[in-house]
Amino acid sequence: MSEQPGEHPSTYMVQDRSNQQELERVHLQDQMITTAMGGVLPEQEDPTALRRILDVGCGTGDWSIEAARTLPTLERVVGVDISVHMLTFAREQAQQQGAERVEFASMDALRMLEFPNASFDLINQRFGQSWIRTWDWPKLLSEYQRVCRPGGIIRITEGDFTLESFSPALNRLNELCIQASFQAGYLFTPTTDGITSHLARVLTQHGLTQVQTHTWNLEFHAGTPAGQHLTEDVRRAYRTIMPFLRKWGSMPKDYEQLYHQALRELQEPGWTSPWTLVTAWGRNPGHTSAHLRFA
């Protein structure tokens, strides 16, 4: 495993943190999903009430930078991640785009978020299913509540673990990924919605109030920029995840054949692939107003 000096041990599926293909995949996926969802906080009634946001597992920093760019009322956006490699890229992006209100820090959210109590108005986490095991959720949500202001928002977005596909080969790869992920503890059930169907329950069970969900039924089509981005995401993902599949006993002998067949099928004209995302959010206990205005 390639690590930078001083980095924490990682639960991330791709253990090689200097893997350039994974960095490029995360960067591409981040932009693709924000665009497909219609922005950084499209389901929130009044994002202008927010002043301070924490983005946990920020990766290449795209969501954090976009939040600062599109929400001028924000005073501070902090992105934290365990990967120094990803954070270096995020800082370079922020500097190039003149995103002065964004800062990035190396931090292990599964251990401790190194901020004072009640530091943020909103905690954002997206695609944590790649590094959060089912037994990590109680402590993680407790830490989110500690650094979130009373009455503030804790917001989680996850996707069905694999997208629905017309491609038999890609469907087979998806099944392998689901089984390995369940064995490794990332899913509550060995199903494609092994995270998304549990989000509201988990947030409520661990103390959040006024929990709501919004489902995003995305579609990706052949011959479109989004469709090409999806193909690139699949191409990179099923390369970088190979050590993970081997570790958890889900690497079949015909993996290479399946991989190349899936990529060929994704080049065929006319295909459509739906993908379901779920955003769940709730209030940090301690405020009775249904609509919170931050000072």
Results as ranks from 00 to 15, higher is better:
Q97L: 15
E7T: 05
A90N: 03
G223R: 08
F188V: 06
H287M: 12
P190S: 10
P225N: 02
G270S: 01
L87V: 10
T34Q: 13
Q4M: 08
A262I: 05
P5Y: 00
M242Y: 12
W135D: 15
A94C: 08
R76W: 05
P42V: 11
P285V: 02
Q261R: 08
C177P: 08
V14P: 09
E219N: 14
G185T: 10
L87D: 13
R146A: 02
T162G: 06
G57Y: 00
D121V: 06
N124P: 05
T134Y: 03
R236V: 10
D30S: 15
R283L: 12
M112C: 14
S273A: 13
T279H: 04
L173T: 06
G185E: 02
S142D: 10
Q145I: 01
G207T: 10
R69I: 12
R283C: 05
P168I: 12
I241P: 11
T189G: 07
L54A: 10
L230C: 07
I132E: 02
P225C: 02
S83V: 04
I132N: 01
Q4A: 12
G207R: 06
A118K: 05
A262F: 02
L170R: 07
E103N: 13
E3N: 10
D233L: 03
Q21W: 09
L54Y: 08
I154G: 02
L41V: 00
T162V: 14
F220N: 00
L258N: 03
Q129W: 11
W248V: 08
A49V: 09
E158N: 05
P274E: 13
Q183M: 03
R264W: 08
F294N: 13
D193M: 09
S142K: 14
A280V: 11
S83W: 00
D160K: 03
R146W: 01
G59R: 00
T134D: 01
T279K: 00
V234C: 01
K247H: 15
R246W: 07
F294Y: 11
Y12V: 03
T204E: 14
H198F: 13
A295Q: 15
R283N: 14
D55T: 11
A99N: 03
I132H: 01
A237D: 08
Y259G: 07
N284R: 15
Q212F: 01
D121L: 07
G223P: 08
R101E: 04
W131G: 05
G79A: 05
F115G: 08
N174I: 03
W63C: 11
A109Y: 00
D30R: 12
E232T: 13
R101H: 09
P168H: 08
